[in-house]
Structures are given as C-alpha cells and as structure tokens.
Amino acid sequence: MSSMPSQDRKRKISWIDFIVVAVVIGFFVFIAQRISSVLIYKWDWSMVAPYIFYFDDDTGEWVANLLVQGLATTVRLALYGIVISALIGVIMGFCRTVNNLFLRMVARVYVEFIRNMPPIVFIFVFYFFISSQIMPLLGVDDFARNASPATLELIRFFAGDPLLFSNFISGLICLAMFEGAYITEIVRAGIQSIPRGQWEAATSVGLSRFHVLRYVILPQAVQRIVPPLANQFINLIKDSSIVSLISIQELTFMAVEVGVSTTRVFEVWIITAVFYFVICYGCAYTFTRMERRMGRSRR
C-alpha cells in the first residue's frame, strides 16, 4: 500500500477516531451545558416559524413571510447578477487578452481594484456613488413611481416591492460590478488556456483575429469557462448577503430584522444559515452532476 494520501483509499477506525469523537462530544456537551445553565436560553421555534410562512385566516392561504421574501430577493439578485456580471466578465476578460494596451490597462485596473479591496468597502463606496448619482441620472426612481399598474406588477414579479426598485437596482449593479471582476479573470484564464498552436494554426490559414476568437478560441474556451462560472454563481449567492448592509432587503437583511423583532436570535440565524446552505450546496451538487454527465458525453 502506498503512503500517498488519495481519495479512494479505504478508511478505517483508528486512535484518531477516538480522539475526534471525544472532542466533538465534549464540545457539544459543553455547549449544551452553557446554553441551559449559564445563558438559560429558551428555545422557541414556534415564534420564528411564522416568519417563514404563516397562515392567513382572512384568505385561508399560506403566505410567504419576511424570510421567504428575503430569500426570493436573494435568488433574484443571484440570477440577474450572474447574467450582468457574466456580460461584464466576458467583455473585460476579452479586453485582458487583446493586443491593445489601453484596453488591457482598463481591464487590469478594474480587476485589481476590485480584487484588492474588501468587498464591504467597495459596496459602501460604490453604493453611495450609484444611489446618489447614477440612479437619479437614469431616472429609475421616477420610472418606478410613475409606472402604470401593469408595469408595477411586472416590477413586483421581477424585482420585488416597487417602492424599493431603485434600491434593488443599485444593489444589483454593485454586486454585478464586484463579481464581474472575478468572472473577468475566469474568462481570461479560459481564453489563455487554449494552446498557442490553436492561435497559430487559425491565423496561419488566414483568419482575422476576430474570426479566430469567434470560431476557434471561444468555442473551446467556453468548455473551460463554464465550470468555474458555475462555481462563481454560488459565490455570488453568498456574496449577495453583503448587500444587506446597504439595506437591500434580501435574506440576511430580513434575518437581522426578524432577529431583532422576535429576539429569538439563535433560531433565526440557524434557519438563515440552513437556507443558504441548502441553496448553495444544492447548486454545487447539481453543477457537479451536470459537469460529470457532460464530461462523459463528450468522450
């Protein structure tokens, strides 16, 4: 048997297991003891449950409450965010690889600027800028205020509460700008991972640079871009929690609200973490399965 650690090696019970189990049990006993005797915390899940769904006596229907509404906003942010940031990423990633030094500098500065700054500092700075300058410039507020009832319904479906439309859009732009930098690097790596020989062969048959990219490089790069892009989608869901700090009413924001109003913070935060975990783990699991299936069909 080799000493090399590997995924498929048979695992067995050893002295390490006893230590691990003892430590874990000890930890939980300690925690339980602290909760019941020192903090004297009274668990009450029934107080928090209505904030997920509650039964409306008037209409006789189950209605989604704050936490689920927040979750819906998180999902919207993630879906729109990945589209916009992928767009930014493809354009900037392409700029990272061109001959034109000016475009390369613009893309490089964008990427380095965002990747070297704490996300929350970026969000604060950029949100202040966007909400105070870009939004009025685009007239988003007026648009949402003067929209016809039909448009309002559309906004409600796609972006949640129309009163918070401008706020939602600002948060979305912040998030997309932020993730765009990471996707830029994914796209750049994808393009640059194509062997030099492919460029050389394609240019030597007389294709222009645009045609080389369009017909030879990008089709191959896409296969290498999609898996990390899927992973970035999960990161985007996680990073979207940060926009709660600029009052975008997504899951984390709602959790803070519910925590304050019910004072059942243990339950609220455990539920919130479970929500995120289920979504992110679910996505990760699905993407891995899909990748494996696509990998198989390509052989």
């Binding site: 020989g197 050389e200 062969a201 394609a202 240019t203 030597s204 048959v205 007389g206 030879v216 191959q220």
Partner: peptide
C-alpha cells in the same frame, strides 16, 4: 500573406471542437 501561404505544424494543431 497568410492567405497565400499554408502552414503545417509539428503538433498538427487541428481544431478539436
């Protein structure tokens, strides 16, 4: 020039896709 000149490489460099 490239349209008048064909080139064959050591590593073939066919487009795999």
């Amino acid at each position: 020039v490239r349209r008048e000149v064909g080139m064959v490489f050591q590593q073939f460099n066919l487009f795999p896709h």
